[in-house]
């Protein structure tokens, strides 16, 4: 979520709660030894744990998106700002001490959850804008494999236009195996062949087979010359210089396809960043809630 001016009221409210909590803690801390079992400590503990539980309920809220239980963005803002407040509340509850093994573990987990949450908030603040700028050809994440398949098909058609021989289009299917790829030379109907010298056609075919096709097969391979936009630009420029002008249109199209592949790779990476931190945040949060409950029962009973 982008933290912008619309969060102002939440920020002010959170700050006000913190200031009140701090204002109450200072005399409490100076007046007696702060501990979780004291009345103020319990208040801070309950408040902090309650905020944790509310923050955790965001996951449940997202499971029922249609239920009219408050707008999802309200819950998200609550998650962020109440989540921020849990740390000071728990610190005030614990009196800035770690205590026994369970409480020490809880404190460490709290810090990890807090820090991962901050990281996630920062990521989700900045990354959407980056994705918008860096991946203008963005598609739906789950569709990336099928889009890539389509791009490969288009590239194959373009490749055939470049280097298919005059008789190939009508010839029976010729299958060549190149690194596991079955390559059909029969050509699509209606494809217009580019007229080039045989030598140029052979060169184009080799370039396609050795550089472009492997990249399209494995666009995440950073070693390919086409993986980097600058080197890819130079590569295609060199190709344009070597081949006659009639082939340039096809080369431009191939270049666009490679650019789109790069963008899809970029999109995947950014998406993993966008949500990868949840692999830390969510399990730790659940464990924190559960262990926090255990701590509350144990501490109050015993």
């Amino acid at each position: 979520m982008r933290i912008d001016r619309s969060h102002r009221s939440w920020a002010i409210a959170a700050l006000a709660v913190f200031v009140v909590a701090l204002a109450a803690y200072v005399p409490y801390a100076f007046g007696s030894r702060p501990a979780g079992g004291t009345a103020p400590g319990l208040v801070y503990g309950v408040a902090g744990y309650g905020m944790m539980v509310f923050a955790a309920l965001l996951g449940v809220r997202k499971k029922v998106p249609v239920w009219r239980l408050g707008r999802a963005q309200t819950w998200m803002r609550g998650h962020i700002w109440f989540g921020l407040l849990t740390l000071p509340m728990i610190l005030f509850h614990a009196g800035f001490t770690f205590g026994g093994p369970l409480t020490s573990l809880l404190m460490v987990m709290l810090f990890l959850v807090f820090l991962s949450g901050l990281t996630g908030a920062a990521i989700q603040h900045f990354l959407p804008g980056m994705m918008k700028s860096l991946v203008p050809l963005e598609t739906i994440y789950e569709q990336i494999p099928s889009v890539r398949e389509q791009l490969r098909g288009e590239a194959d058609d373009l490749g055939r236009v470049l280097f298919a021989q005059p008789g190939d289009i009508l010839a029976p299917v010729t299958v060549q195996v190149l690194g596991g790829v079955d390559w059909d030379l029969s050509g699509p109907k209606g494809v217009t062949m580019v007229e080039m010298e045989a030598e140029d056609r052979t060169y184009a075919g080799n370039v396609y087979r050795n550089t472009i096709l492997p990249f399209l097969r494995n666009p995440d391979d950073g070693a390919s010359v086409l993986a980097d936009p600058d080197s890819a630009g130079k590569f295609f420029e060199a190709l344009r210089r070597k081949l006659p002008a009639v082939a340039h249109g096809v080369i431009v199209d191939l270049e666009s396809i490679c650019e789109e592949e790069r963008q899809l790779t970029r999109q995947r990476r950014l998406y993993l960043w966008m949500y990868g931190w949840l692999l830390v945040h969510v399990p730790l949060s659940i464990a924190l809630i559960v262990l926090g409950g255990v701590h509350a029962v144990v501490a109050l009973r015993y």
Binding site: M1, R2, K62, P65, A72, Q124, L127, P128, G129, M131, K132, I140, Y141, Y271, M274
Partner: peptide, 9 residues
Amino acid sequence: LEKCTRCDN
């Protein structure tokens, strides 16, 4: 797109 995290909610 500057706010959307592509969560598909």
